[in-house]
């Protein structure tokens, strides 16, 4: 299958180094302490954050830091065929864990001992790269909930098909069976907090692909910062400052 034409266009018309169109909105769930919708092309994810609040299960309470919990799920309508059955399957558990660990690494948990932070992410529409979109949405929602963080965490995936590194795989490219590298970084601190890969890649190619994914993360970070600034301006405006 030809994923990149000799003219250098992918199936959906992007060039190999291009991301899908990004869109983000904050404060979409009024009841939550913080919330956001993050859209990458046809992938759409909603995230809601509750906390810091009292720990529900006393036995889990930690005296030196906050407890971070994460729940990932996919809406039944998120894929074309209404097949997926809610949470609890291996994939959801794994992504929940991935998102939790990534977010935990950037939240300043030691500032909020004996409390709990709940992150709920749900995929509204899936078209590849849901994991990255979840992390990006969660970052925005945490920022919206004013939870202290070391830095923003942003994530992006990259793959390698037809001997070409490709940024931000969509569903068609993702299901091609090639390698799929998901990277999460702290853009300001220039640190990698998440790195996952399916399939195999030779090490020198891997370097290129990972570098590409990091570039993607940085682009996402720039966009998220814009959204945050815009949002703050809106808040200022509403307060009449």
């Amino acid at each position: 299958m030809e994923y990149v034409s000799p003219e250098g266009l992918r199936i959906d018309g992007r060039r190999p180094m291009e991301m899908r169109k990004l869109h983000a909105e904050m404060g979409v769930v009024a009841k939550a302490d913080g919330s956001a919708v993050f859209v990458m092309g046809n992938t759409k994810v909603i995230a809601a954050v509750y906390g810091p609040r009292e720990v529900q299960n006393r036995s889990q309470q930690m005296s030196d830091q906050a407890l971070v919990r994460c729940e990932y799920s996919m809406a039944n309508f998120s894929t074309g065929d209404r097949m997926r059955k809610g949470k609890g399957d291996r994939r959801s558990t794994e992504i929940s864990l991935v998102v939790r660990q990534t977010m935990e690494a950037c939240i300043l948990t030691h500032l909020m001992p004996r409390s709990q932070i709940d992150i709920y992410v749900q995929v509204l529409q899936a078209d590849g790269g849901t994991r990255c979109a979840c992390i990006n949405a969660a970052t925005l929602a945490l920022a919206d909930a004013a939870i202290p963080m070391r830095d923003l965490v942003t994530s992006c995936s990259a793959g390698y098909l037809n001997s070409t590194p490709l940024l931000d795989l969509n569903y068609v490219e993702d299901s091609a069976g090639g390698p799929d590298v998901t990277v999460g970084i702290l853009p300001k601190m220039d640190k990698v907090t998440l790195l996952q890969m399916d399939s195999k890649l030779p090490i020198d190619t891997f370097d290129n692909v990972m570098q590409l994914a990091i570039e993607g993360c940085k682009a996402v970070a720039t966009y998220i910062r814009e959204v945050l600034l815009e949002n703050t301006k809106q808040l200022e405006y509403h307060r009449g400052v």
């Binding site: 018309g13 899908r20 169109k21 092309g41 046809n42 074309g80 078209d127 969509n170």
Partner: peptide
């Protein structure tokens, strides 16, 4: 330089499914 344009395609693969794919138009 990205123009986003989603469009709908119907493909037959045993049963009828609706595929939505992005289609970027460029300048």
């Amino acid at each position: 330089m990205l123009h986003n344009k989603s469009f709908v395609r119907k493909t037959k693969s045993g049963k009828i499914t609706k595929n939505v794919r992005e289609h970027y138009l460029r300048d």
